[in-house]
Simulated scan of single mutants.
Amino acid sequence: MQSYLFLGIAIFAETIATLSLKASNGFTRLGPSLVVAVGYVTAFYFLSLTLRAIPIGVAYAVWSGIGIVLISAIGWAVFGQKPDAWGTVGIGFILVGVMIVNLMSRTSAH
């Protein structure tokens, strides 16, 4: 269970770092640029801890899939970047895929 906590921290840190990329304005603003660097270092550190117990394919699928869903939702809410219908369907498939891997696959750590 601790591995999923580490994975959650990695996803959160990566989400903050990715959102800060926009605010960094191409790394021309120091504060947001530092948040990007610290966020990605934190994300990869906790992802590495996750890999002690969760297979790399599963961990990466969850990390990237949940990250895509979160970034898309925040992009819509904060930046007004609303996906079109097909974009929403695709993001829904990503979310369903993550759920299938975690709930039904024998490759994930339960």
Rank of each mutant, 00 (worst) to 15 (best):
A43Q: 13
R52W: 06
F79L: 10
G65A: 05
V78R: 03
I100N: 09
A61R: 02
A43W: 03
P83K: 01
A59M: 08
L95Y: 02
P32C: 07
G75T: 09
V89T: 05
V35R: 08
I94A: 03
L49G: 04
L19S: 06
S105I: 10
L19T: 01
L49F: 04
G26C: 14
A109P: 03
L34F: 14
M99F: 13
W76N: 05
G26S: 10
F12K: 06
Y4I: 07
G31H: 05
G26Y: 13
S105G: 08
I11F: 07
I71L: 07
I91Y: 02
A109D: 10
V98E: 07
I11M: 10
Y60C: 07
G8E: 12
S24C: 13
A85N: 09
Q2V: 14
L5V: 10
A13W: 08
L47P: 13
W63F: 15
G67I: 06
L19Q: 09
V96M: 06
K22D: 09
T88P: 00
A73C: 00
A53P: 00
A17R: 06
K82H: 15
M99I: 13
T15Y: 00
S33G: 09
V36C: 13
W86I: 03
P55V: 01
G90E: 02
L51P: 00
F27E: 06
L34M: 10
G57C: 10
M99S: 13
S33D: 10
L5A: 13
K22P: 12
S72T: 12
L7Y: 09
A10T: 11
W63M: 12
A85C: 05
S33H: 03
P83H: 01
V35D: 05
A77C: 11
S3F: 01
